[in-house]
Design a protein around this nucleic acid. Structure first.
Lengths: 151, 151
DNA sequence: CAAGATTGAACCCTCAATCTTA
DNA sequence: TAAGATTGAGGGTTCAATCTTG
């Protein structure tokens, strides 16, 4: 049916929008206030230190993040200027390495991230609702078949 | 405690990210493919035709959307160039009016929006879980005290 | 050649000025 | 003057070229 959303559907949708926007914003702010890292910086550095112990081929970074090549290229350029990482090599030997400054920042950022996630999501769910809620989120996320992970 | 997320907390968080990103993307794509409107265009035009019958003071638009003035100003500028709306007057008499083309586009977009919301969210929730799920989303969205509505 | 990185162009968003005008 | 709109500057994203280089 090509019908518009009913009033209650719309109310649910607005709540969804508010909830997802607010959580994203709160997490981003907590990390930015603590470390100055943007969400994109955080994603890149987290992958780098978690998965690669601080160093990784750009190719692999692109795959793991599920990002456009151009997006990653521009992001890494900005991060290099800010001293968060360094790049060398070319072709399949294009290597990205977190600087000490980048590694320090992401260590702090991960704590801020955990704090914000708990405060805005985990702690907001009543204990008796948790199982159902997370099961449903998983069902919704399953629609994102061929998609990325961002942390 | 300043601990990082546990494995299960992280799994839930990743599912949350995937779900929210996928839904946002699916809705945006459905609207863009149908009408060429961006999410920002859709928000502005929806308010304009819903709340103001096609015309509204810029001031009120800013309040309803909860947007930065500069953001709205730039957005309206781009939309005017694309022929989606017109602007006239100044000060409190700055009026924004959807063009016929803008009104037509948003009418189609609202149908696409409803279709995508149902497909990605509503229909993904098991009937027996709906009450709990929407109650929880409302609780989470309540943290966004002083925040916007975007549709 | 072909995979992969980069860049041009344009959209989106935000902060901090800088107009405008009632 | 002060509220409100706009603009300068810069980070972030995407698409479509355009390099590079193995």
């Amino acid at each position: 049916m090509d019908a518009l959303l009913s009033e209650s559907e719309m109310a649910n949708w607005v709540a969804w929008k508010r909830a997802t926007d607010a959580v994203m914003r709160a997490v981003a702010n907590e990390i930015a206030d603590t470390t100055g890292l943007s969400p994109a910086d955080f994603s890149v550095l987290t992958r780098l230190v978690e998965e690669g112990n601080g160093t990784m081929r750009q190719q692999r970074l692109a795959d793991e993040l599920g990002w456009e090549r151009s997006r990653l290229s521009r992001q890494l350029g900005r991060m290099e200027v800010r001293g968060l990482l360094s790049r060398k090599g070319s072709g399949p030997e294009r290597w990205i390495t977190a600087t000490d400054s980048g590694a320090d920042a992401v260590a702090l950022a991960r704590v801020a991230h955990a704090r914000a996630v708990r405060r805005t999501v985990t702690d907001a769910i009543e204990a008796s609702d948790r199982t159902t809620f997370w099961k449903t989120i998983s069902r919704i996320s399953a629609i994102s078949d061929a998609l990325q992970a961002t942390y």
